[in-house]
Amino acid sequence: MQKRSMYNEKIHVWGRISLAFAIISFASYPVLASIIFGVWPNGRLIIQGLLAVAPVYWTVGAIEAFTFGPMLGSGGAYLGFVTGNLTAMKVPAALRAMQIADVEPNTEEGEVISTIAIAVSSIVTTLILFFGMLLLNMLSPLLESELLAPAFANILPALFGALGIVFLAKNWRIAIAPIVLMLTVFLIQPSLASMVSILIPISAAFTIGVTRLLYKKHLV
């Protein structure tokens, strides 16, 4: 028990320190580039650019943090938010790993498995991007070919079809209401597909509400 709480405490210390350094290192790229080239950015452009994207990005970022943070566990969250690509890569990787290892989220076992999956996923992504960049001239014609375009255009349906059936099989009772809700939403307003990050917490809150109701009535 002592050791358990020690790991828990340490993960927050490691996570916070590494995250703080990561933020500094991300910011250092434009700052150091400015110093090296002796050129400074256009403040008006930055403000105008930020006004165009920040209201949405900051809202989505906050929503993602409060939705995915609990899902991934602390180690997974500290790492996942630094390495990015959460919805299409890190969160499904963690989910899949916890399901295969037969551990529950919000347990220490779930936390370490999620962290391992996210760490491996980010290492593999880094390596693929590095070697992909080195071999760009060779790979570009193949990756950008018309033949393969439909495969990459359908990466999300391919991912969530497989993941969805696993969760449906696990607990179909809590799946029905959010699926019906989201189907209705997208059929009425297809353009909302571009705002999927904002819809995730709405769907999650709705699912939690329905699940609570089912739980109170002893139906799940």
Binding site: T67, P70, M71, T87, V91, L95, E104, P105, N106, L156, P157, L159, F160, G161, L163, G164, F167, K170, N171, I174, A175, P178, I179, L181, M182, L183, T184, V185, F186, L187, P190, L192, A193, V196, L199, I200, P201, S203, A204, A205, F206, T207, I208, V210, T211
Partner: peptide, 18 residues
Amino acid sequence: MDALFMGMIATFLGMVFA
């Protein structure tokens, strides 16, 4: 936790029908 995951998955499953 299951509800949180299902909420996310349901959003993408719905989006597929957009």
